[in-house]
Amino acid sequence: MAQIRVEQLCKRYAVAERQPGAWGAVKGLFHRRQRVVEALKDVSFSLQAGELLGFIGPNGAGKSTTVKILSGILRPTSGLCEIDGLTPWLHRIRHVARIGVVFGQRTQLWWDLPVIESFELLRDIYRVDEAAFRRTKAEMVERLRIERLLDTPLRQLSLGQRMRCEIAAAMLHRPSILFLDEPTIGLDATSKLAVREVVRTLNREEGVTVILTTHDMHDIEALAERVIVIGNGVVLRDSSFEALRAEALGETRLVVEFAGAPSAIDIPGVSTRTREDGAVELAFDARRMPAHALISRIAAEHDVADIHVEEPQIEAVIARFYALHGAAEG
């Protein structure tokens, strides 16, 4: 049975609109115009225990809203959500005791307290017994390499150090589900790798279900087998990352550099463009024409110095996917 079941989740906000200018402000005293924002229109999916799901989508697509509903902070306008038999917003207290959440842009540790004291507070707040706390703390301290940070007040830590402590904090009560909302935002390369490493270990070795939202496609590439793309409040795609990549990649590019004078390449289904440096760029659909076939044909027919395949950057791929579905933020 699915651990998480989400059906037709919908969330509408009424936003008070201020009309411009002084007269608008006066009118606002008597009558407020309200605009309805549909953050989520229809989001459905289900997740098995132990899965690692990547949630991607442009800013304002509804990723964070979904995470907030799933974690019990927000109540949806309509729809159904069941996590381990509980509805998050109806059984908030029981539900939140079983989940761990990290918001990359916020902190759940006390700013003025040494990290270890924040951990001890969380131990009491989650009613974790002392022996279990010591075990988990030791494990997390080792996995995240935060031994030397424990006695430092949070405000003196770097963002990367802080994020490692945040993840440890979210795991102290041994949640079976971990929500990570942009956990690598603003981190340097080393810290990003460390975060990915520990998320992978928690998921693979300890069977923690992970829901990860991010704008960093390398997070997704490194971690998620399954990806949900969300745009304008609906699920655009729910598939494996490989399938998404293949679909979004669409055309592949081949760059041909000639040994002698450039000659025209005329192959059906392939569009060409001559670059300033004299090389010719070919665009084609790799699903219909395999790259290796094309390469050997060109090599046979022309005097070629070099041929290489140019894969578009994953960022560019996703941006194109958003644009294709009209989901890019206006």
Partner: peptide
């Protein structure tokens, strides 16, 4: 003001 209130709602307490 900062939105950190979200974490408060994640605690298993009243």
């Amino acid at each position: 003001r900062s939105g950190a209130v979200a974490y408060e709602r994640l605690r298993p307490v009243d």
